[in-house]
Design a protein around this nucleic acid. Structure first.
Lengths: 229, 229
DNA sequence: CCAAAAGTGTTAAAACTACACCCATGA
DNA sequence: TCATGGGTGTAGTTTTAACACTTTTGG
């Protein structure tokens, strides 16, 4: 970087893969485009980075503007720079992924989210640009990271049952886990704390609710503990 | 991304953290700047992205131009977008890290590398821009990734002793490993193959040379095997 | 013959896996 | 009273961790 810019500049954008979880599936939030290129097709929420905002700020701003989602877990994923990825001109995009608890956030509460909708990961429409590839990289990252960082809790409500937690891992890792072994492991780590409450309105015995104990997690981590499912 | 660019654009750069390993230490390649800002200070090799090249191409081009290093392991790290990270103007940089075998590549063979030099990670000069932070993120990534991806071999010559391999992990992970357990584990994975040769010119019993067997690694990986040290 | 690193096995503890039944609740 | 999921323990196997001595080679 020994000299100033003497060439044409690529444009710089951000795109966000928002994952949500319901009782069935991992879901992804998509936006239906209403302008060319790819008019009418579904795409990841995103937009251009302004010169006076950080990349994280740009991603959060676009999320609010396009989906109404705010204050959610957001992490940078990868930067995609294929020369022809946007047919209009050279656009490099910094991709993020976000995790959101589907029960706690209502997309439709947003003003400008007429074209936003959740799709199950297993049944996505055709996506604009290289967004299919971005989404695959995001899912790959989520699957890898969820095993050794306690990010999965971001997909659950504040208080959750161990069944919900196990279901989360089963959906993301795409394999079944043994109930007894899973509970033993999670409880042995001491990073989920039992609350005094139980589920409501279920047609069977109600399960105990637990809470992720971030303080204990941070303390244990400083002592060399490694989270792993 | 529903509209074209109506704002000023950030400039886009790449920077590369090149790691090398010798008998002592992890080393990092730095460039001494000869222009403001930070004139005379050391910095990561890097430069602006051209509009007709991919990010990977830009990183490789800058590496060749500034250090003479080519055909080395290179992987995207993270994109840094703090608004004031460059005092001249808004510059977003896509950081990479690279791994190189110090025995196999001579920096001084490069034409334009008068200002390039290796520094031990444990004794770095003050760096320009936010390059100290980039370097810390790169080291963190290397430390995390080396345990579950066979990238460490990139830091060694084609044929290496098990001692060299163990030393590599000890330096990167910053802790001692048990010789017998380490050998057992590595050999049990069957991804390093014994050669028929041994070390030369050592003042003690010469160790057997091994080679990383990428074909076997790929085959095992397809079968669900997970590398882990 | 000395210094330096190569090479090699065993045992105890811990972690992991597989597996089945009774219990509580609401409909 | 039935359907549904909640909740619990054990035994066999595998993996990990700790640990010390003999061999080979060049100087």
């Amino acid at each position: 970087m020994g000299h100033t810019y003497e060439f044409a500049r690529p444009a710089l954008a951000v795109d966000v893969v928002v994952f949500g979880l319901d009782e069935e599936d991992l879901q992804v939030m998509l936006i239906q485009r209403d302008l060319p290129p790819f008019d009418g097709q579904w795409a990841l929420p995103g937009g251009f980075v302004r010169v006076e905002e950080t990349l994280d700020d740009a991603a959060r701003r676009e999320l609010v503007e396009e989906t109404g989602l705010r204050d959610i877990y957001l992490e940078q994923l990868y930067t995609f720079g294929a020369v022809e990825r946007d047919p209009r001109e050279r656009v490099v995009t910094v991709a993020y992924y976000a995790l959101v608890n589907l029960e706690g956030h209502d997309v439709r509460a947003s003003t400008d989210a007429r074209n936003a909708a959740w799709f199950p990961l297993s049944d996505l429409p055709e996506l604009a640009f290289d967004h299919q590839e971005i989404l695959e990289v995001a899912y790959e990252r989520l699957r890898g990271k969820v095993r050794y960082q306690p990010i999965g809790f971001e997909l659950l409500p504040d208080r959750f049952t161990l069944r919900q937690l196990q279901h989360l891992y089963e959906v993301i890792l795409d394999r079944e886990l043994d109930k007894r072994n899973f509970r033993k492991k999670v409880l042995a780590m001491e990073i989920v704390r039992e609350t005094k409450d139980i589920e409501k309105d279920v047609a069977h015995r109600a399960a105990r609710l637990y809470r992720f104990d971030k303080r204990t997690y941070d303390r244990l981590t400083r002592q060399g503990f490694n989270f792993e499912i």
